[in-house]
């Protein structure tokens, strides 16, 4: 790596977002999350049927949305890596970072859904189509993350292998969806993305849900940037540490001679 690509501390400069942009996104994320807490707990009216339990929705739905977004980003980045003309390390790291966040948000969606389902459906878990496919999605990409954790002898070959694994897993998503959908169907129909676009939920409730979606998406972008940076620093860490150790050794031995 040339000197120009390193900062003063000798670390690679490779960043996903410009530092200024990252700071702005970070601040907006915190503000929107605080607003979500206020609207979710106090601003939005209590649901007539489900009571306060319905408020879990403001976290559950954004988590589920992010799960899909994150896995889509993983698949798209993997495809871009596999395509020779766009092959670059950035896509491999982005795919890995996004998959980890996707697994986290999928897990969050499952747990929150369970907490919501207990008072509303009377059970922690139901063998409903969307629940089962989400659980399978969780394990599909958990496996992908486990695969990524195993270091490859050849970095480019390993990245190619990971990209293919992500796409194989992604192809399975619609198959899982349809097979499970045929198997059972019980979940309430999607409310916001209803094609008829009837305002079926109270205005403030809808606003809060959108707020949650935006806040979580910003959080995802911010965490994606941080995870990407971590991956950059992980790569070549051993080399840098060796370099530093040698430099230290040289400087101490010079001191002895002097």
């Amino acid at each position: 790596m040339s000197e120009a690509e390193r900062d003063d501390a000798g670390l690679p400069r490779d960043e996903l977002l410009a530092p200024m942009l990252r700071r702005v996104i970070g601040v907006v994320t915190i503000v929107s999350l605080v607003a979500l807490v206020l609207f979710g707990l106090w601003g939005a009216p209590t649901d007539e049927v489900q009571g306060d339990a319905q408020r879990v929705m403001y976290l559950h739905v954004p988590s589920a949305w992010l799960a899909y977004l994150a896995f889509f980003v993983t698949a798209a980045a993997s495809a871009l890596f596999l395509w020779r003309r766009t092959r670059a390390e950035v896509w491999d790291r982005l795919a890995g970072a996004s998959a980890e966040l996707g697994v986290m948000f999928t897990g969050l969606a499952l747990v929150l859904g369970s907490i919501w389902g207990r008072p509303v459906w009377g059970v922690w878990w139901a063998w409903d189509a969307r629940l089962v496919s989400t659980a399978l999605l969780f394990f599909l990409f958990l496996g992908y993350c486990a695969l990524r954790r195993i270091p490859a002898a050849d970095p480019v070959g390993g990245a190619k292998r990971n990209a293919i694994a992500a796409l194989i897993a992604f192809v399975d998503v619609p198959i899982v969806h349809f097979s499970v959908e045929w198997w059972r169907t019980l979940h309430q129909q999607a409310t916001v993305f209803n094609p008829q676009l009837n305002p079926q939920i109270h205005g403030v409730m809808g606003l809060t849900l959108w707020l949650g979606t935006i806040a979580f998406t910003l959080l995802y972008v911010y965490l994606l940037d941080r995870r990407y940076r971590l991956a950059v620093l992980e790569d070549g860490r051993a080399d840098r540490e060796l370099e530093r150790a040698i430099a230290e050794r040289i400087s101490t031995s010079r001191g002895v001679v002097a």
Binding site: F139, L140, G143, A146, I150, I168, A169, V176, V180
Partner: peptide, 15 residues
């Protein structure tokens, strides 16, 4: 690793 990778993918076959 193989079971963790393979089993979720072939879940639709099982079903």
């Amino acid at each position: 690793l193989l079971p963790l990778l393979l089993l979720p993918v072939i879940a639709p076959v099982m079903l």
